[in-house]
Amino acid sequence: MRLLLRYLRLAAKGQLRYRSTFYLTAFAQIAMPLSLLAGISLLFARFGTLGGWSMGEALLCYGVTQVAFALAELSSRGFDNFPSILANGEFDRILVRPRGLMLQVLGSRLDLSRFGRLIVGGIVLAWAAKGSGVEWTPLKAATIALMTLCGAVVFSSLFVLGAAFAFLTTDGLELVNIFTDGGREMAQYPMSIYERWLRLFFTFVIPFACVNYLPLLFVLGRPGTGPAYALLPLAGLAFALPCLLAWRAGTRRYVSTGS
């Protein structure tokens, strides 16, 4: 814990040293989700509804996804950047230090400019909480919080999976983006607009639907849903397990091949 705080301080110090760069990145971190938001609201302004969802309802989906992704990026950037950590020999350095490997990978790349996305996501979420017309209860609020946290776990797990993959090859890593960036893109709209094969994949293989769409149905009080839906985000935690195993296999392989 103390070490994590130290990493955080170092990251803050290093990144604030280059003010112009920091502000540019922070601006970008705000502008990117904002331009997307503008796009969504323009579409709603023109068409009024998206597969039976109002703008407020859809933005709830968008907000949860953005906040979850921002949390994951804020913490797990090191895994997202792992190919570079491998390439420049930083991982060897990490191996000769007496601390957990994952902790050190996390700590080496904390990126504070990602707060931008978090802030945008948070504001949208707050606005949508009102605009969606949901009658809030403690259970529903807790569901949203759980969705966000477990969503962040799913995104982080994907970053870790990508890093494990990087032990094998640096070619083709772009494929991982399908599930991270692509997953974010997809999960910010209600899942019902997608084709069945896509919905099934993102429910049972990578459980984005479980941390977002399905529990949201309960929050919005759609017929046929019940409080049991509030527990679905926990499926996101189950997804973390195979990703962690893959990471462990990757590090094992690394120390036995040295490449």
Partner: peptide
Amino acid sequence: RSQLWWDVPVIDSFELLRDVY
């Protein structure tokens, strides 16, 4: 290869190492 953090004063890297070890 360097083990020091590139953008922060050297002493901060040392303090990080203190916590690491």
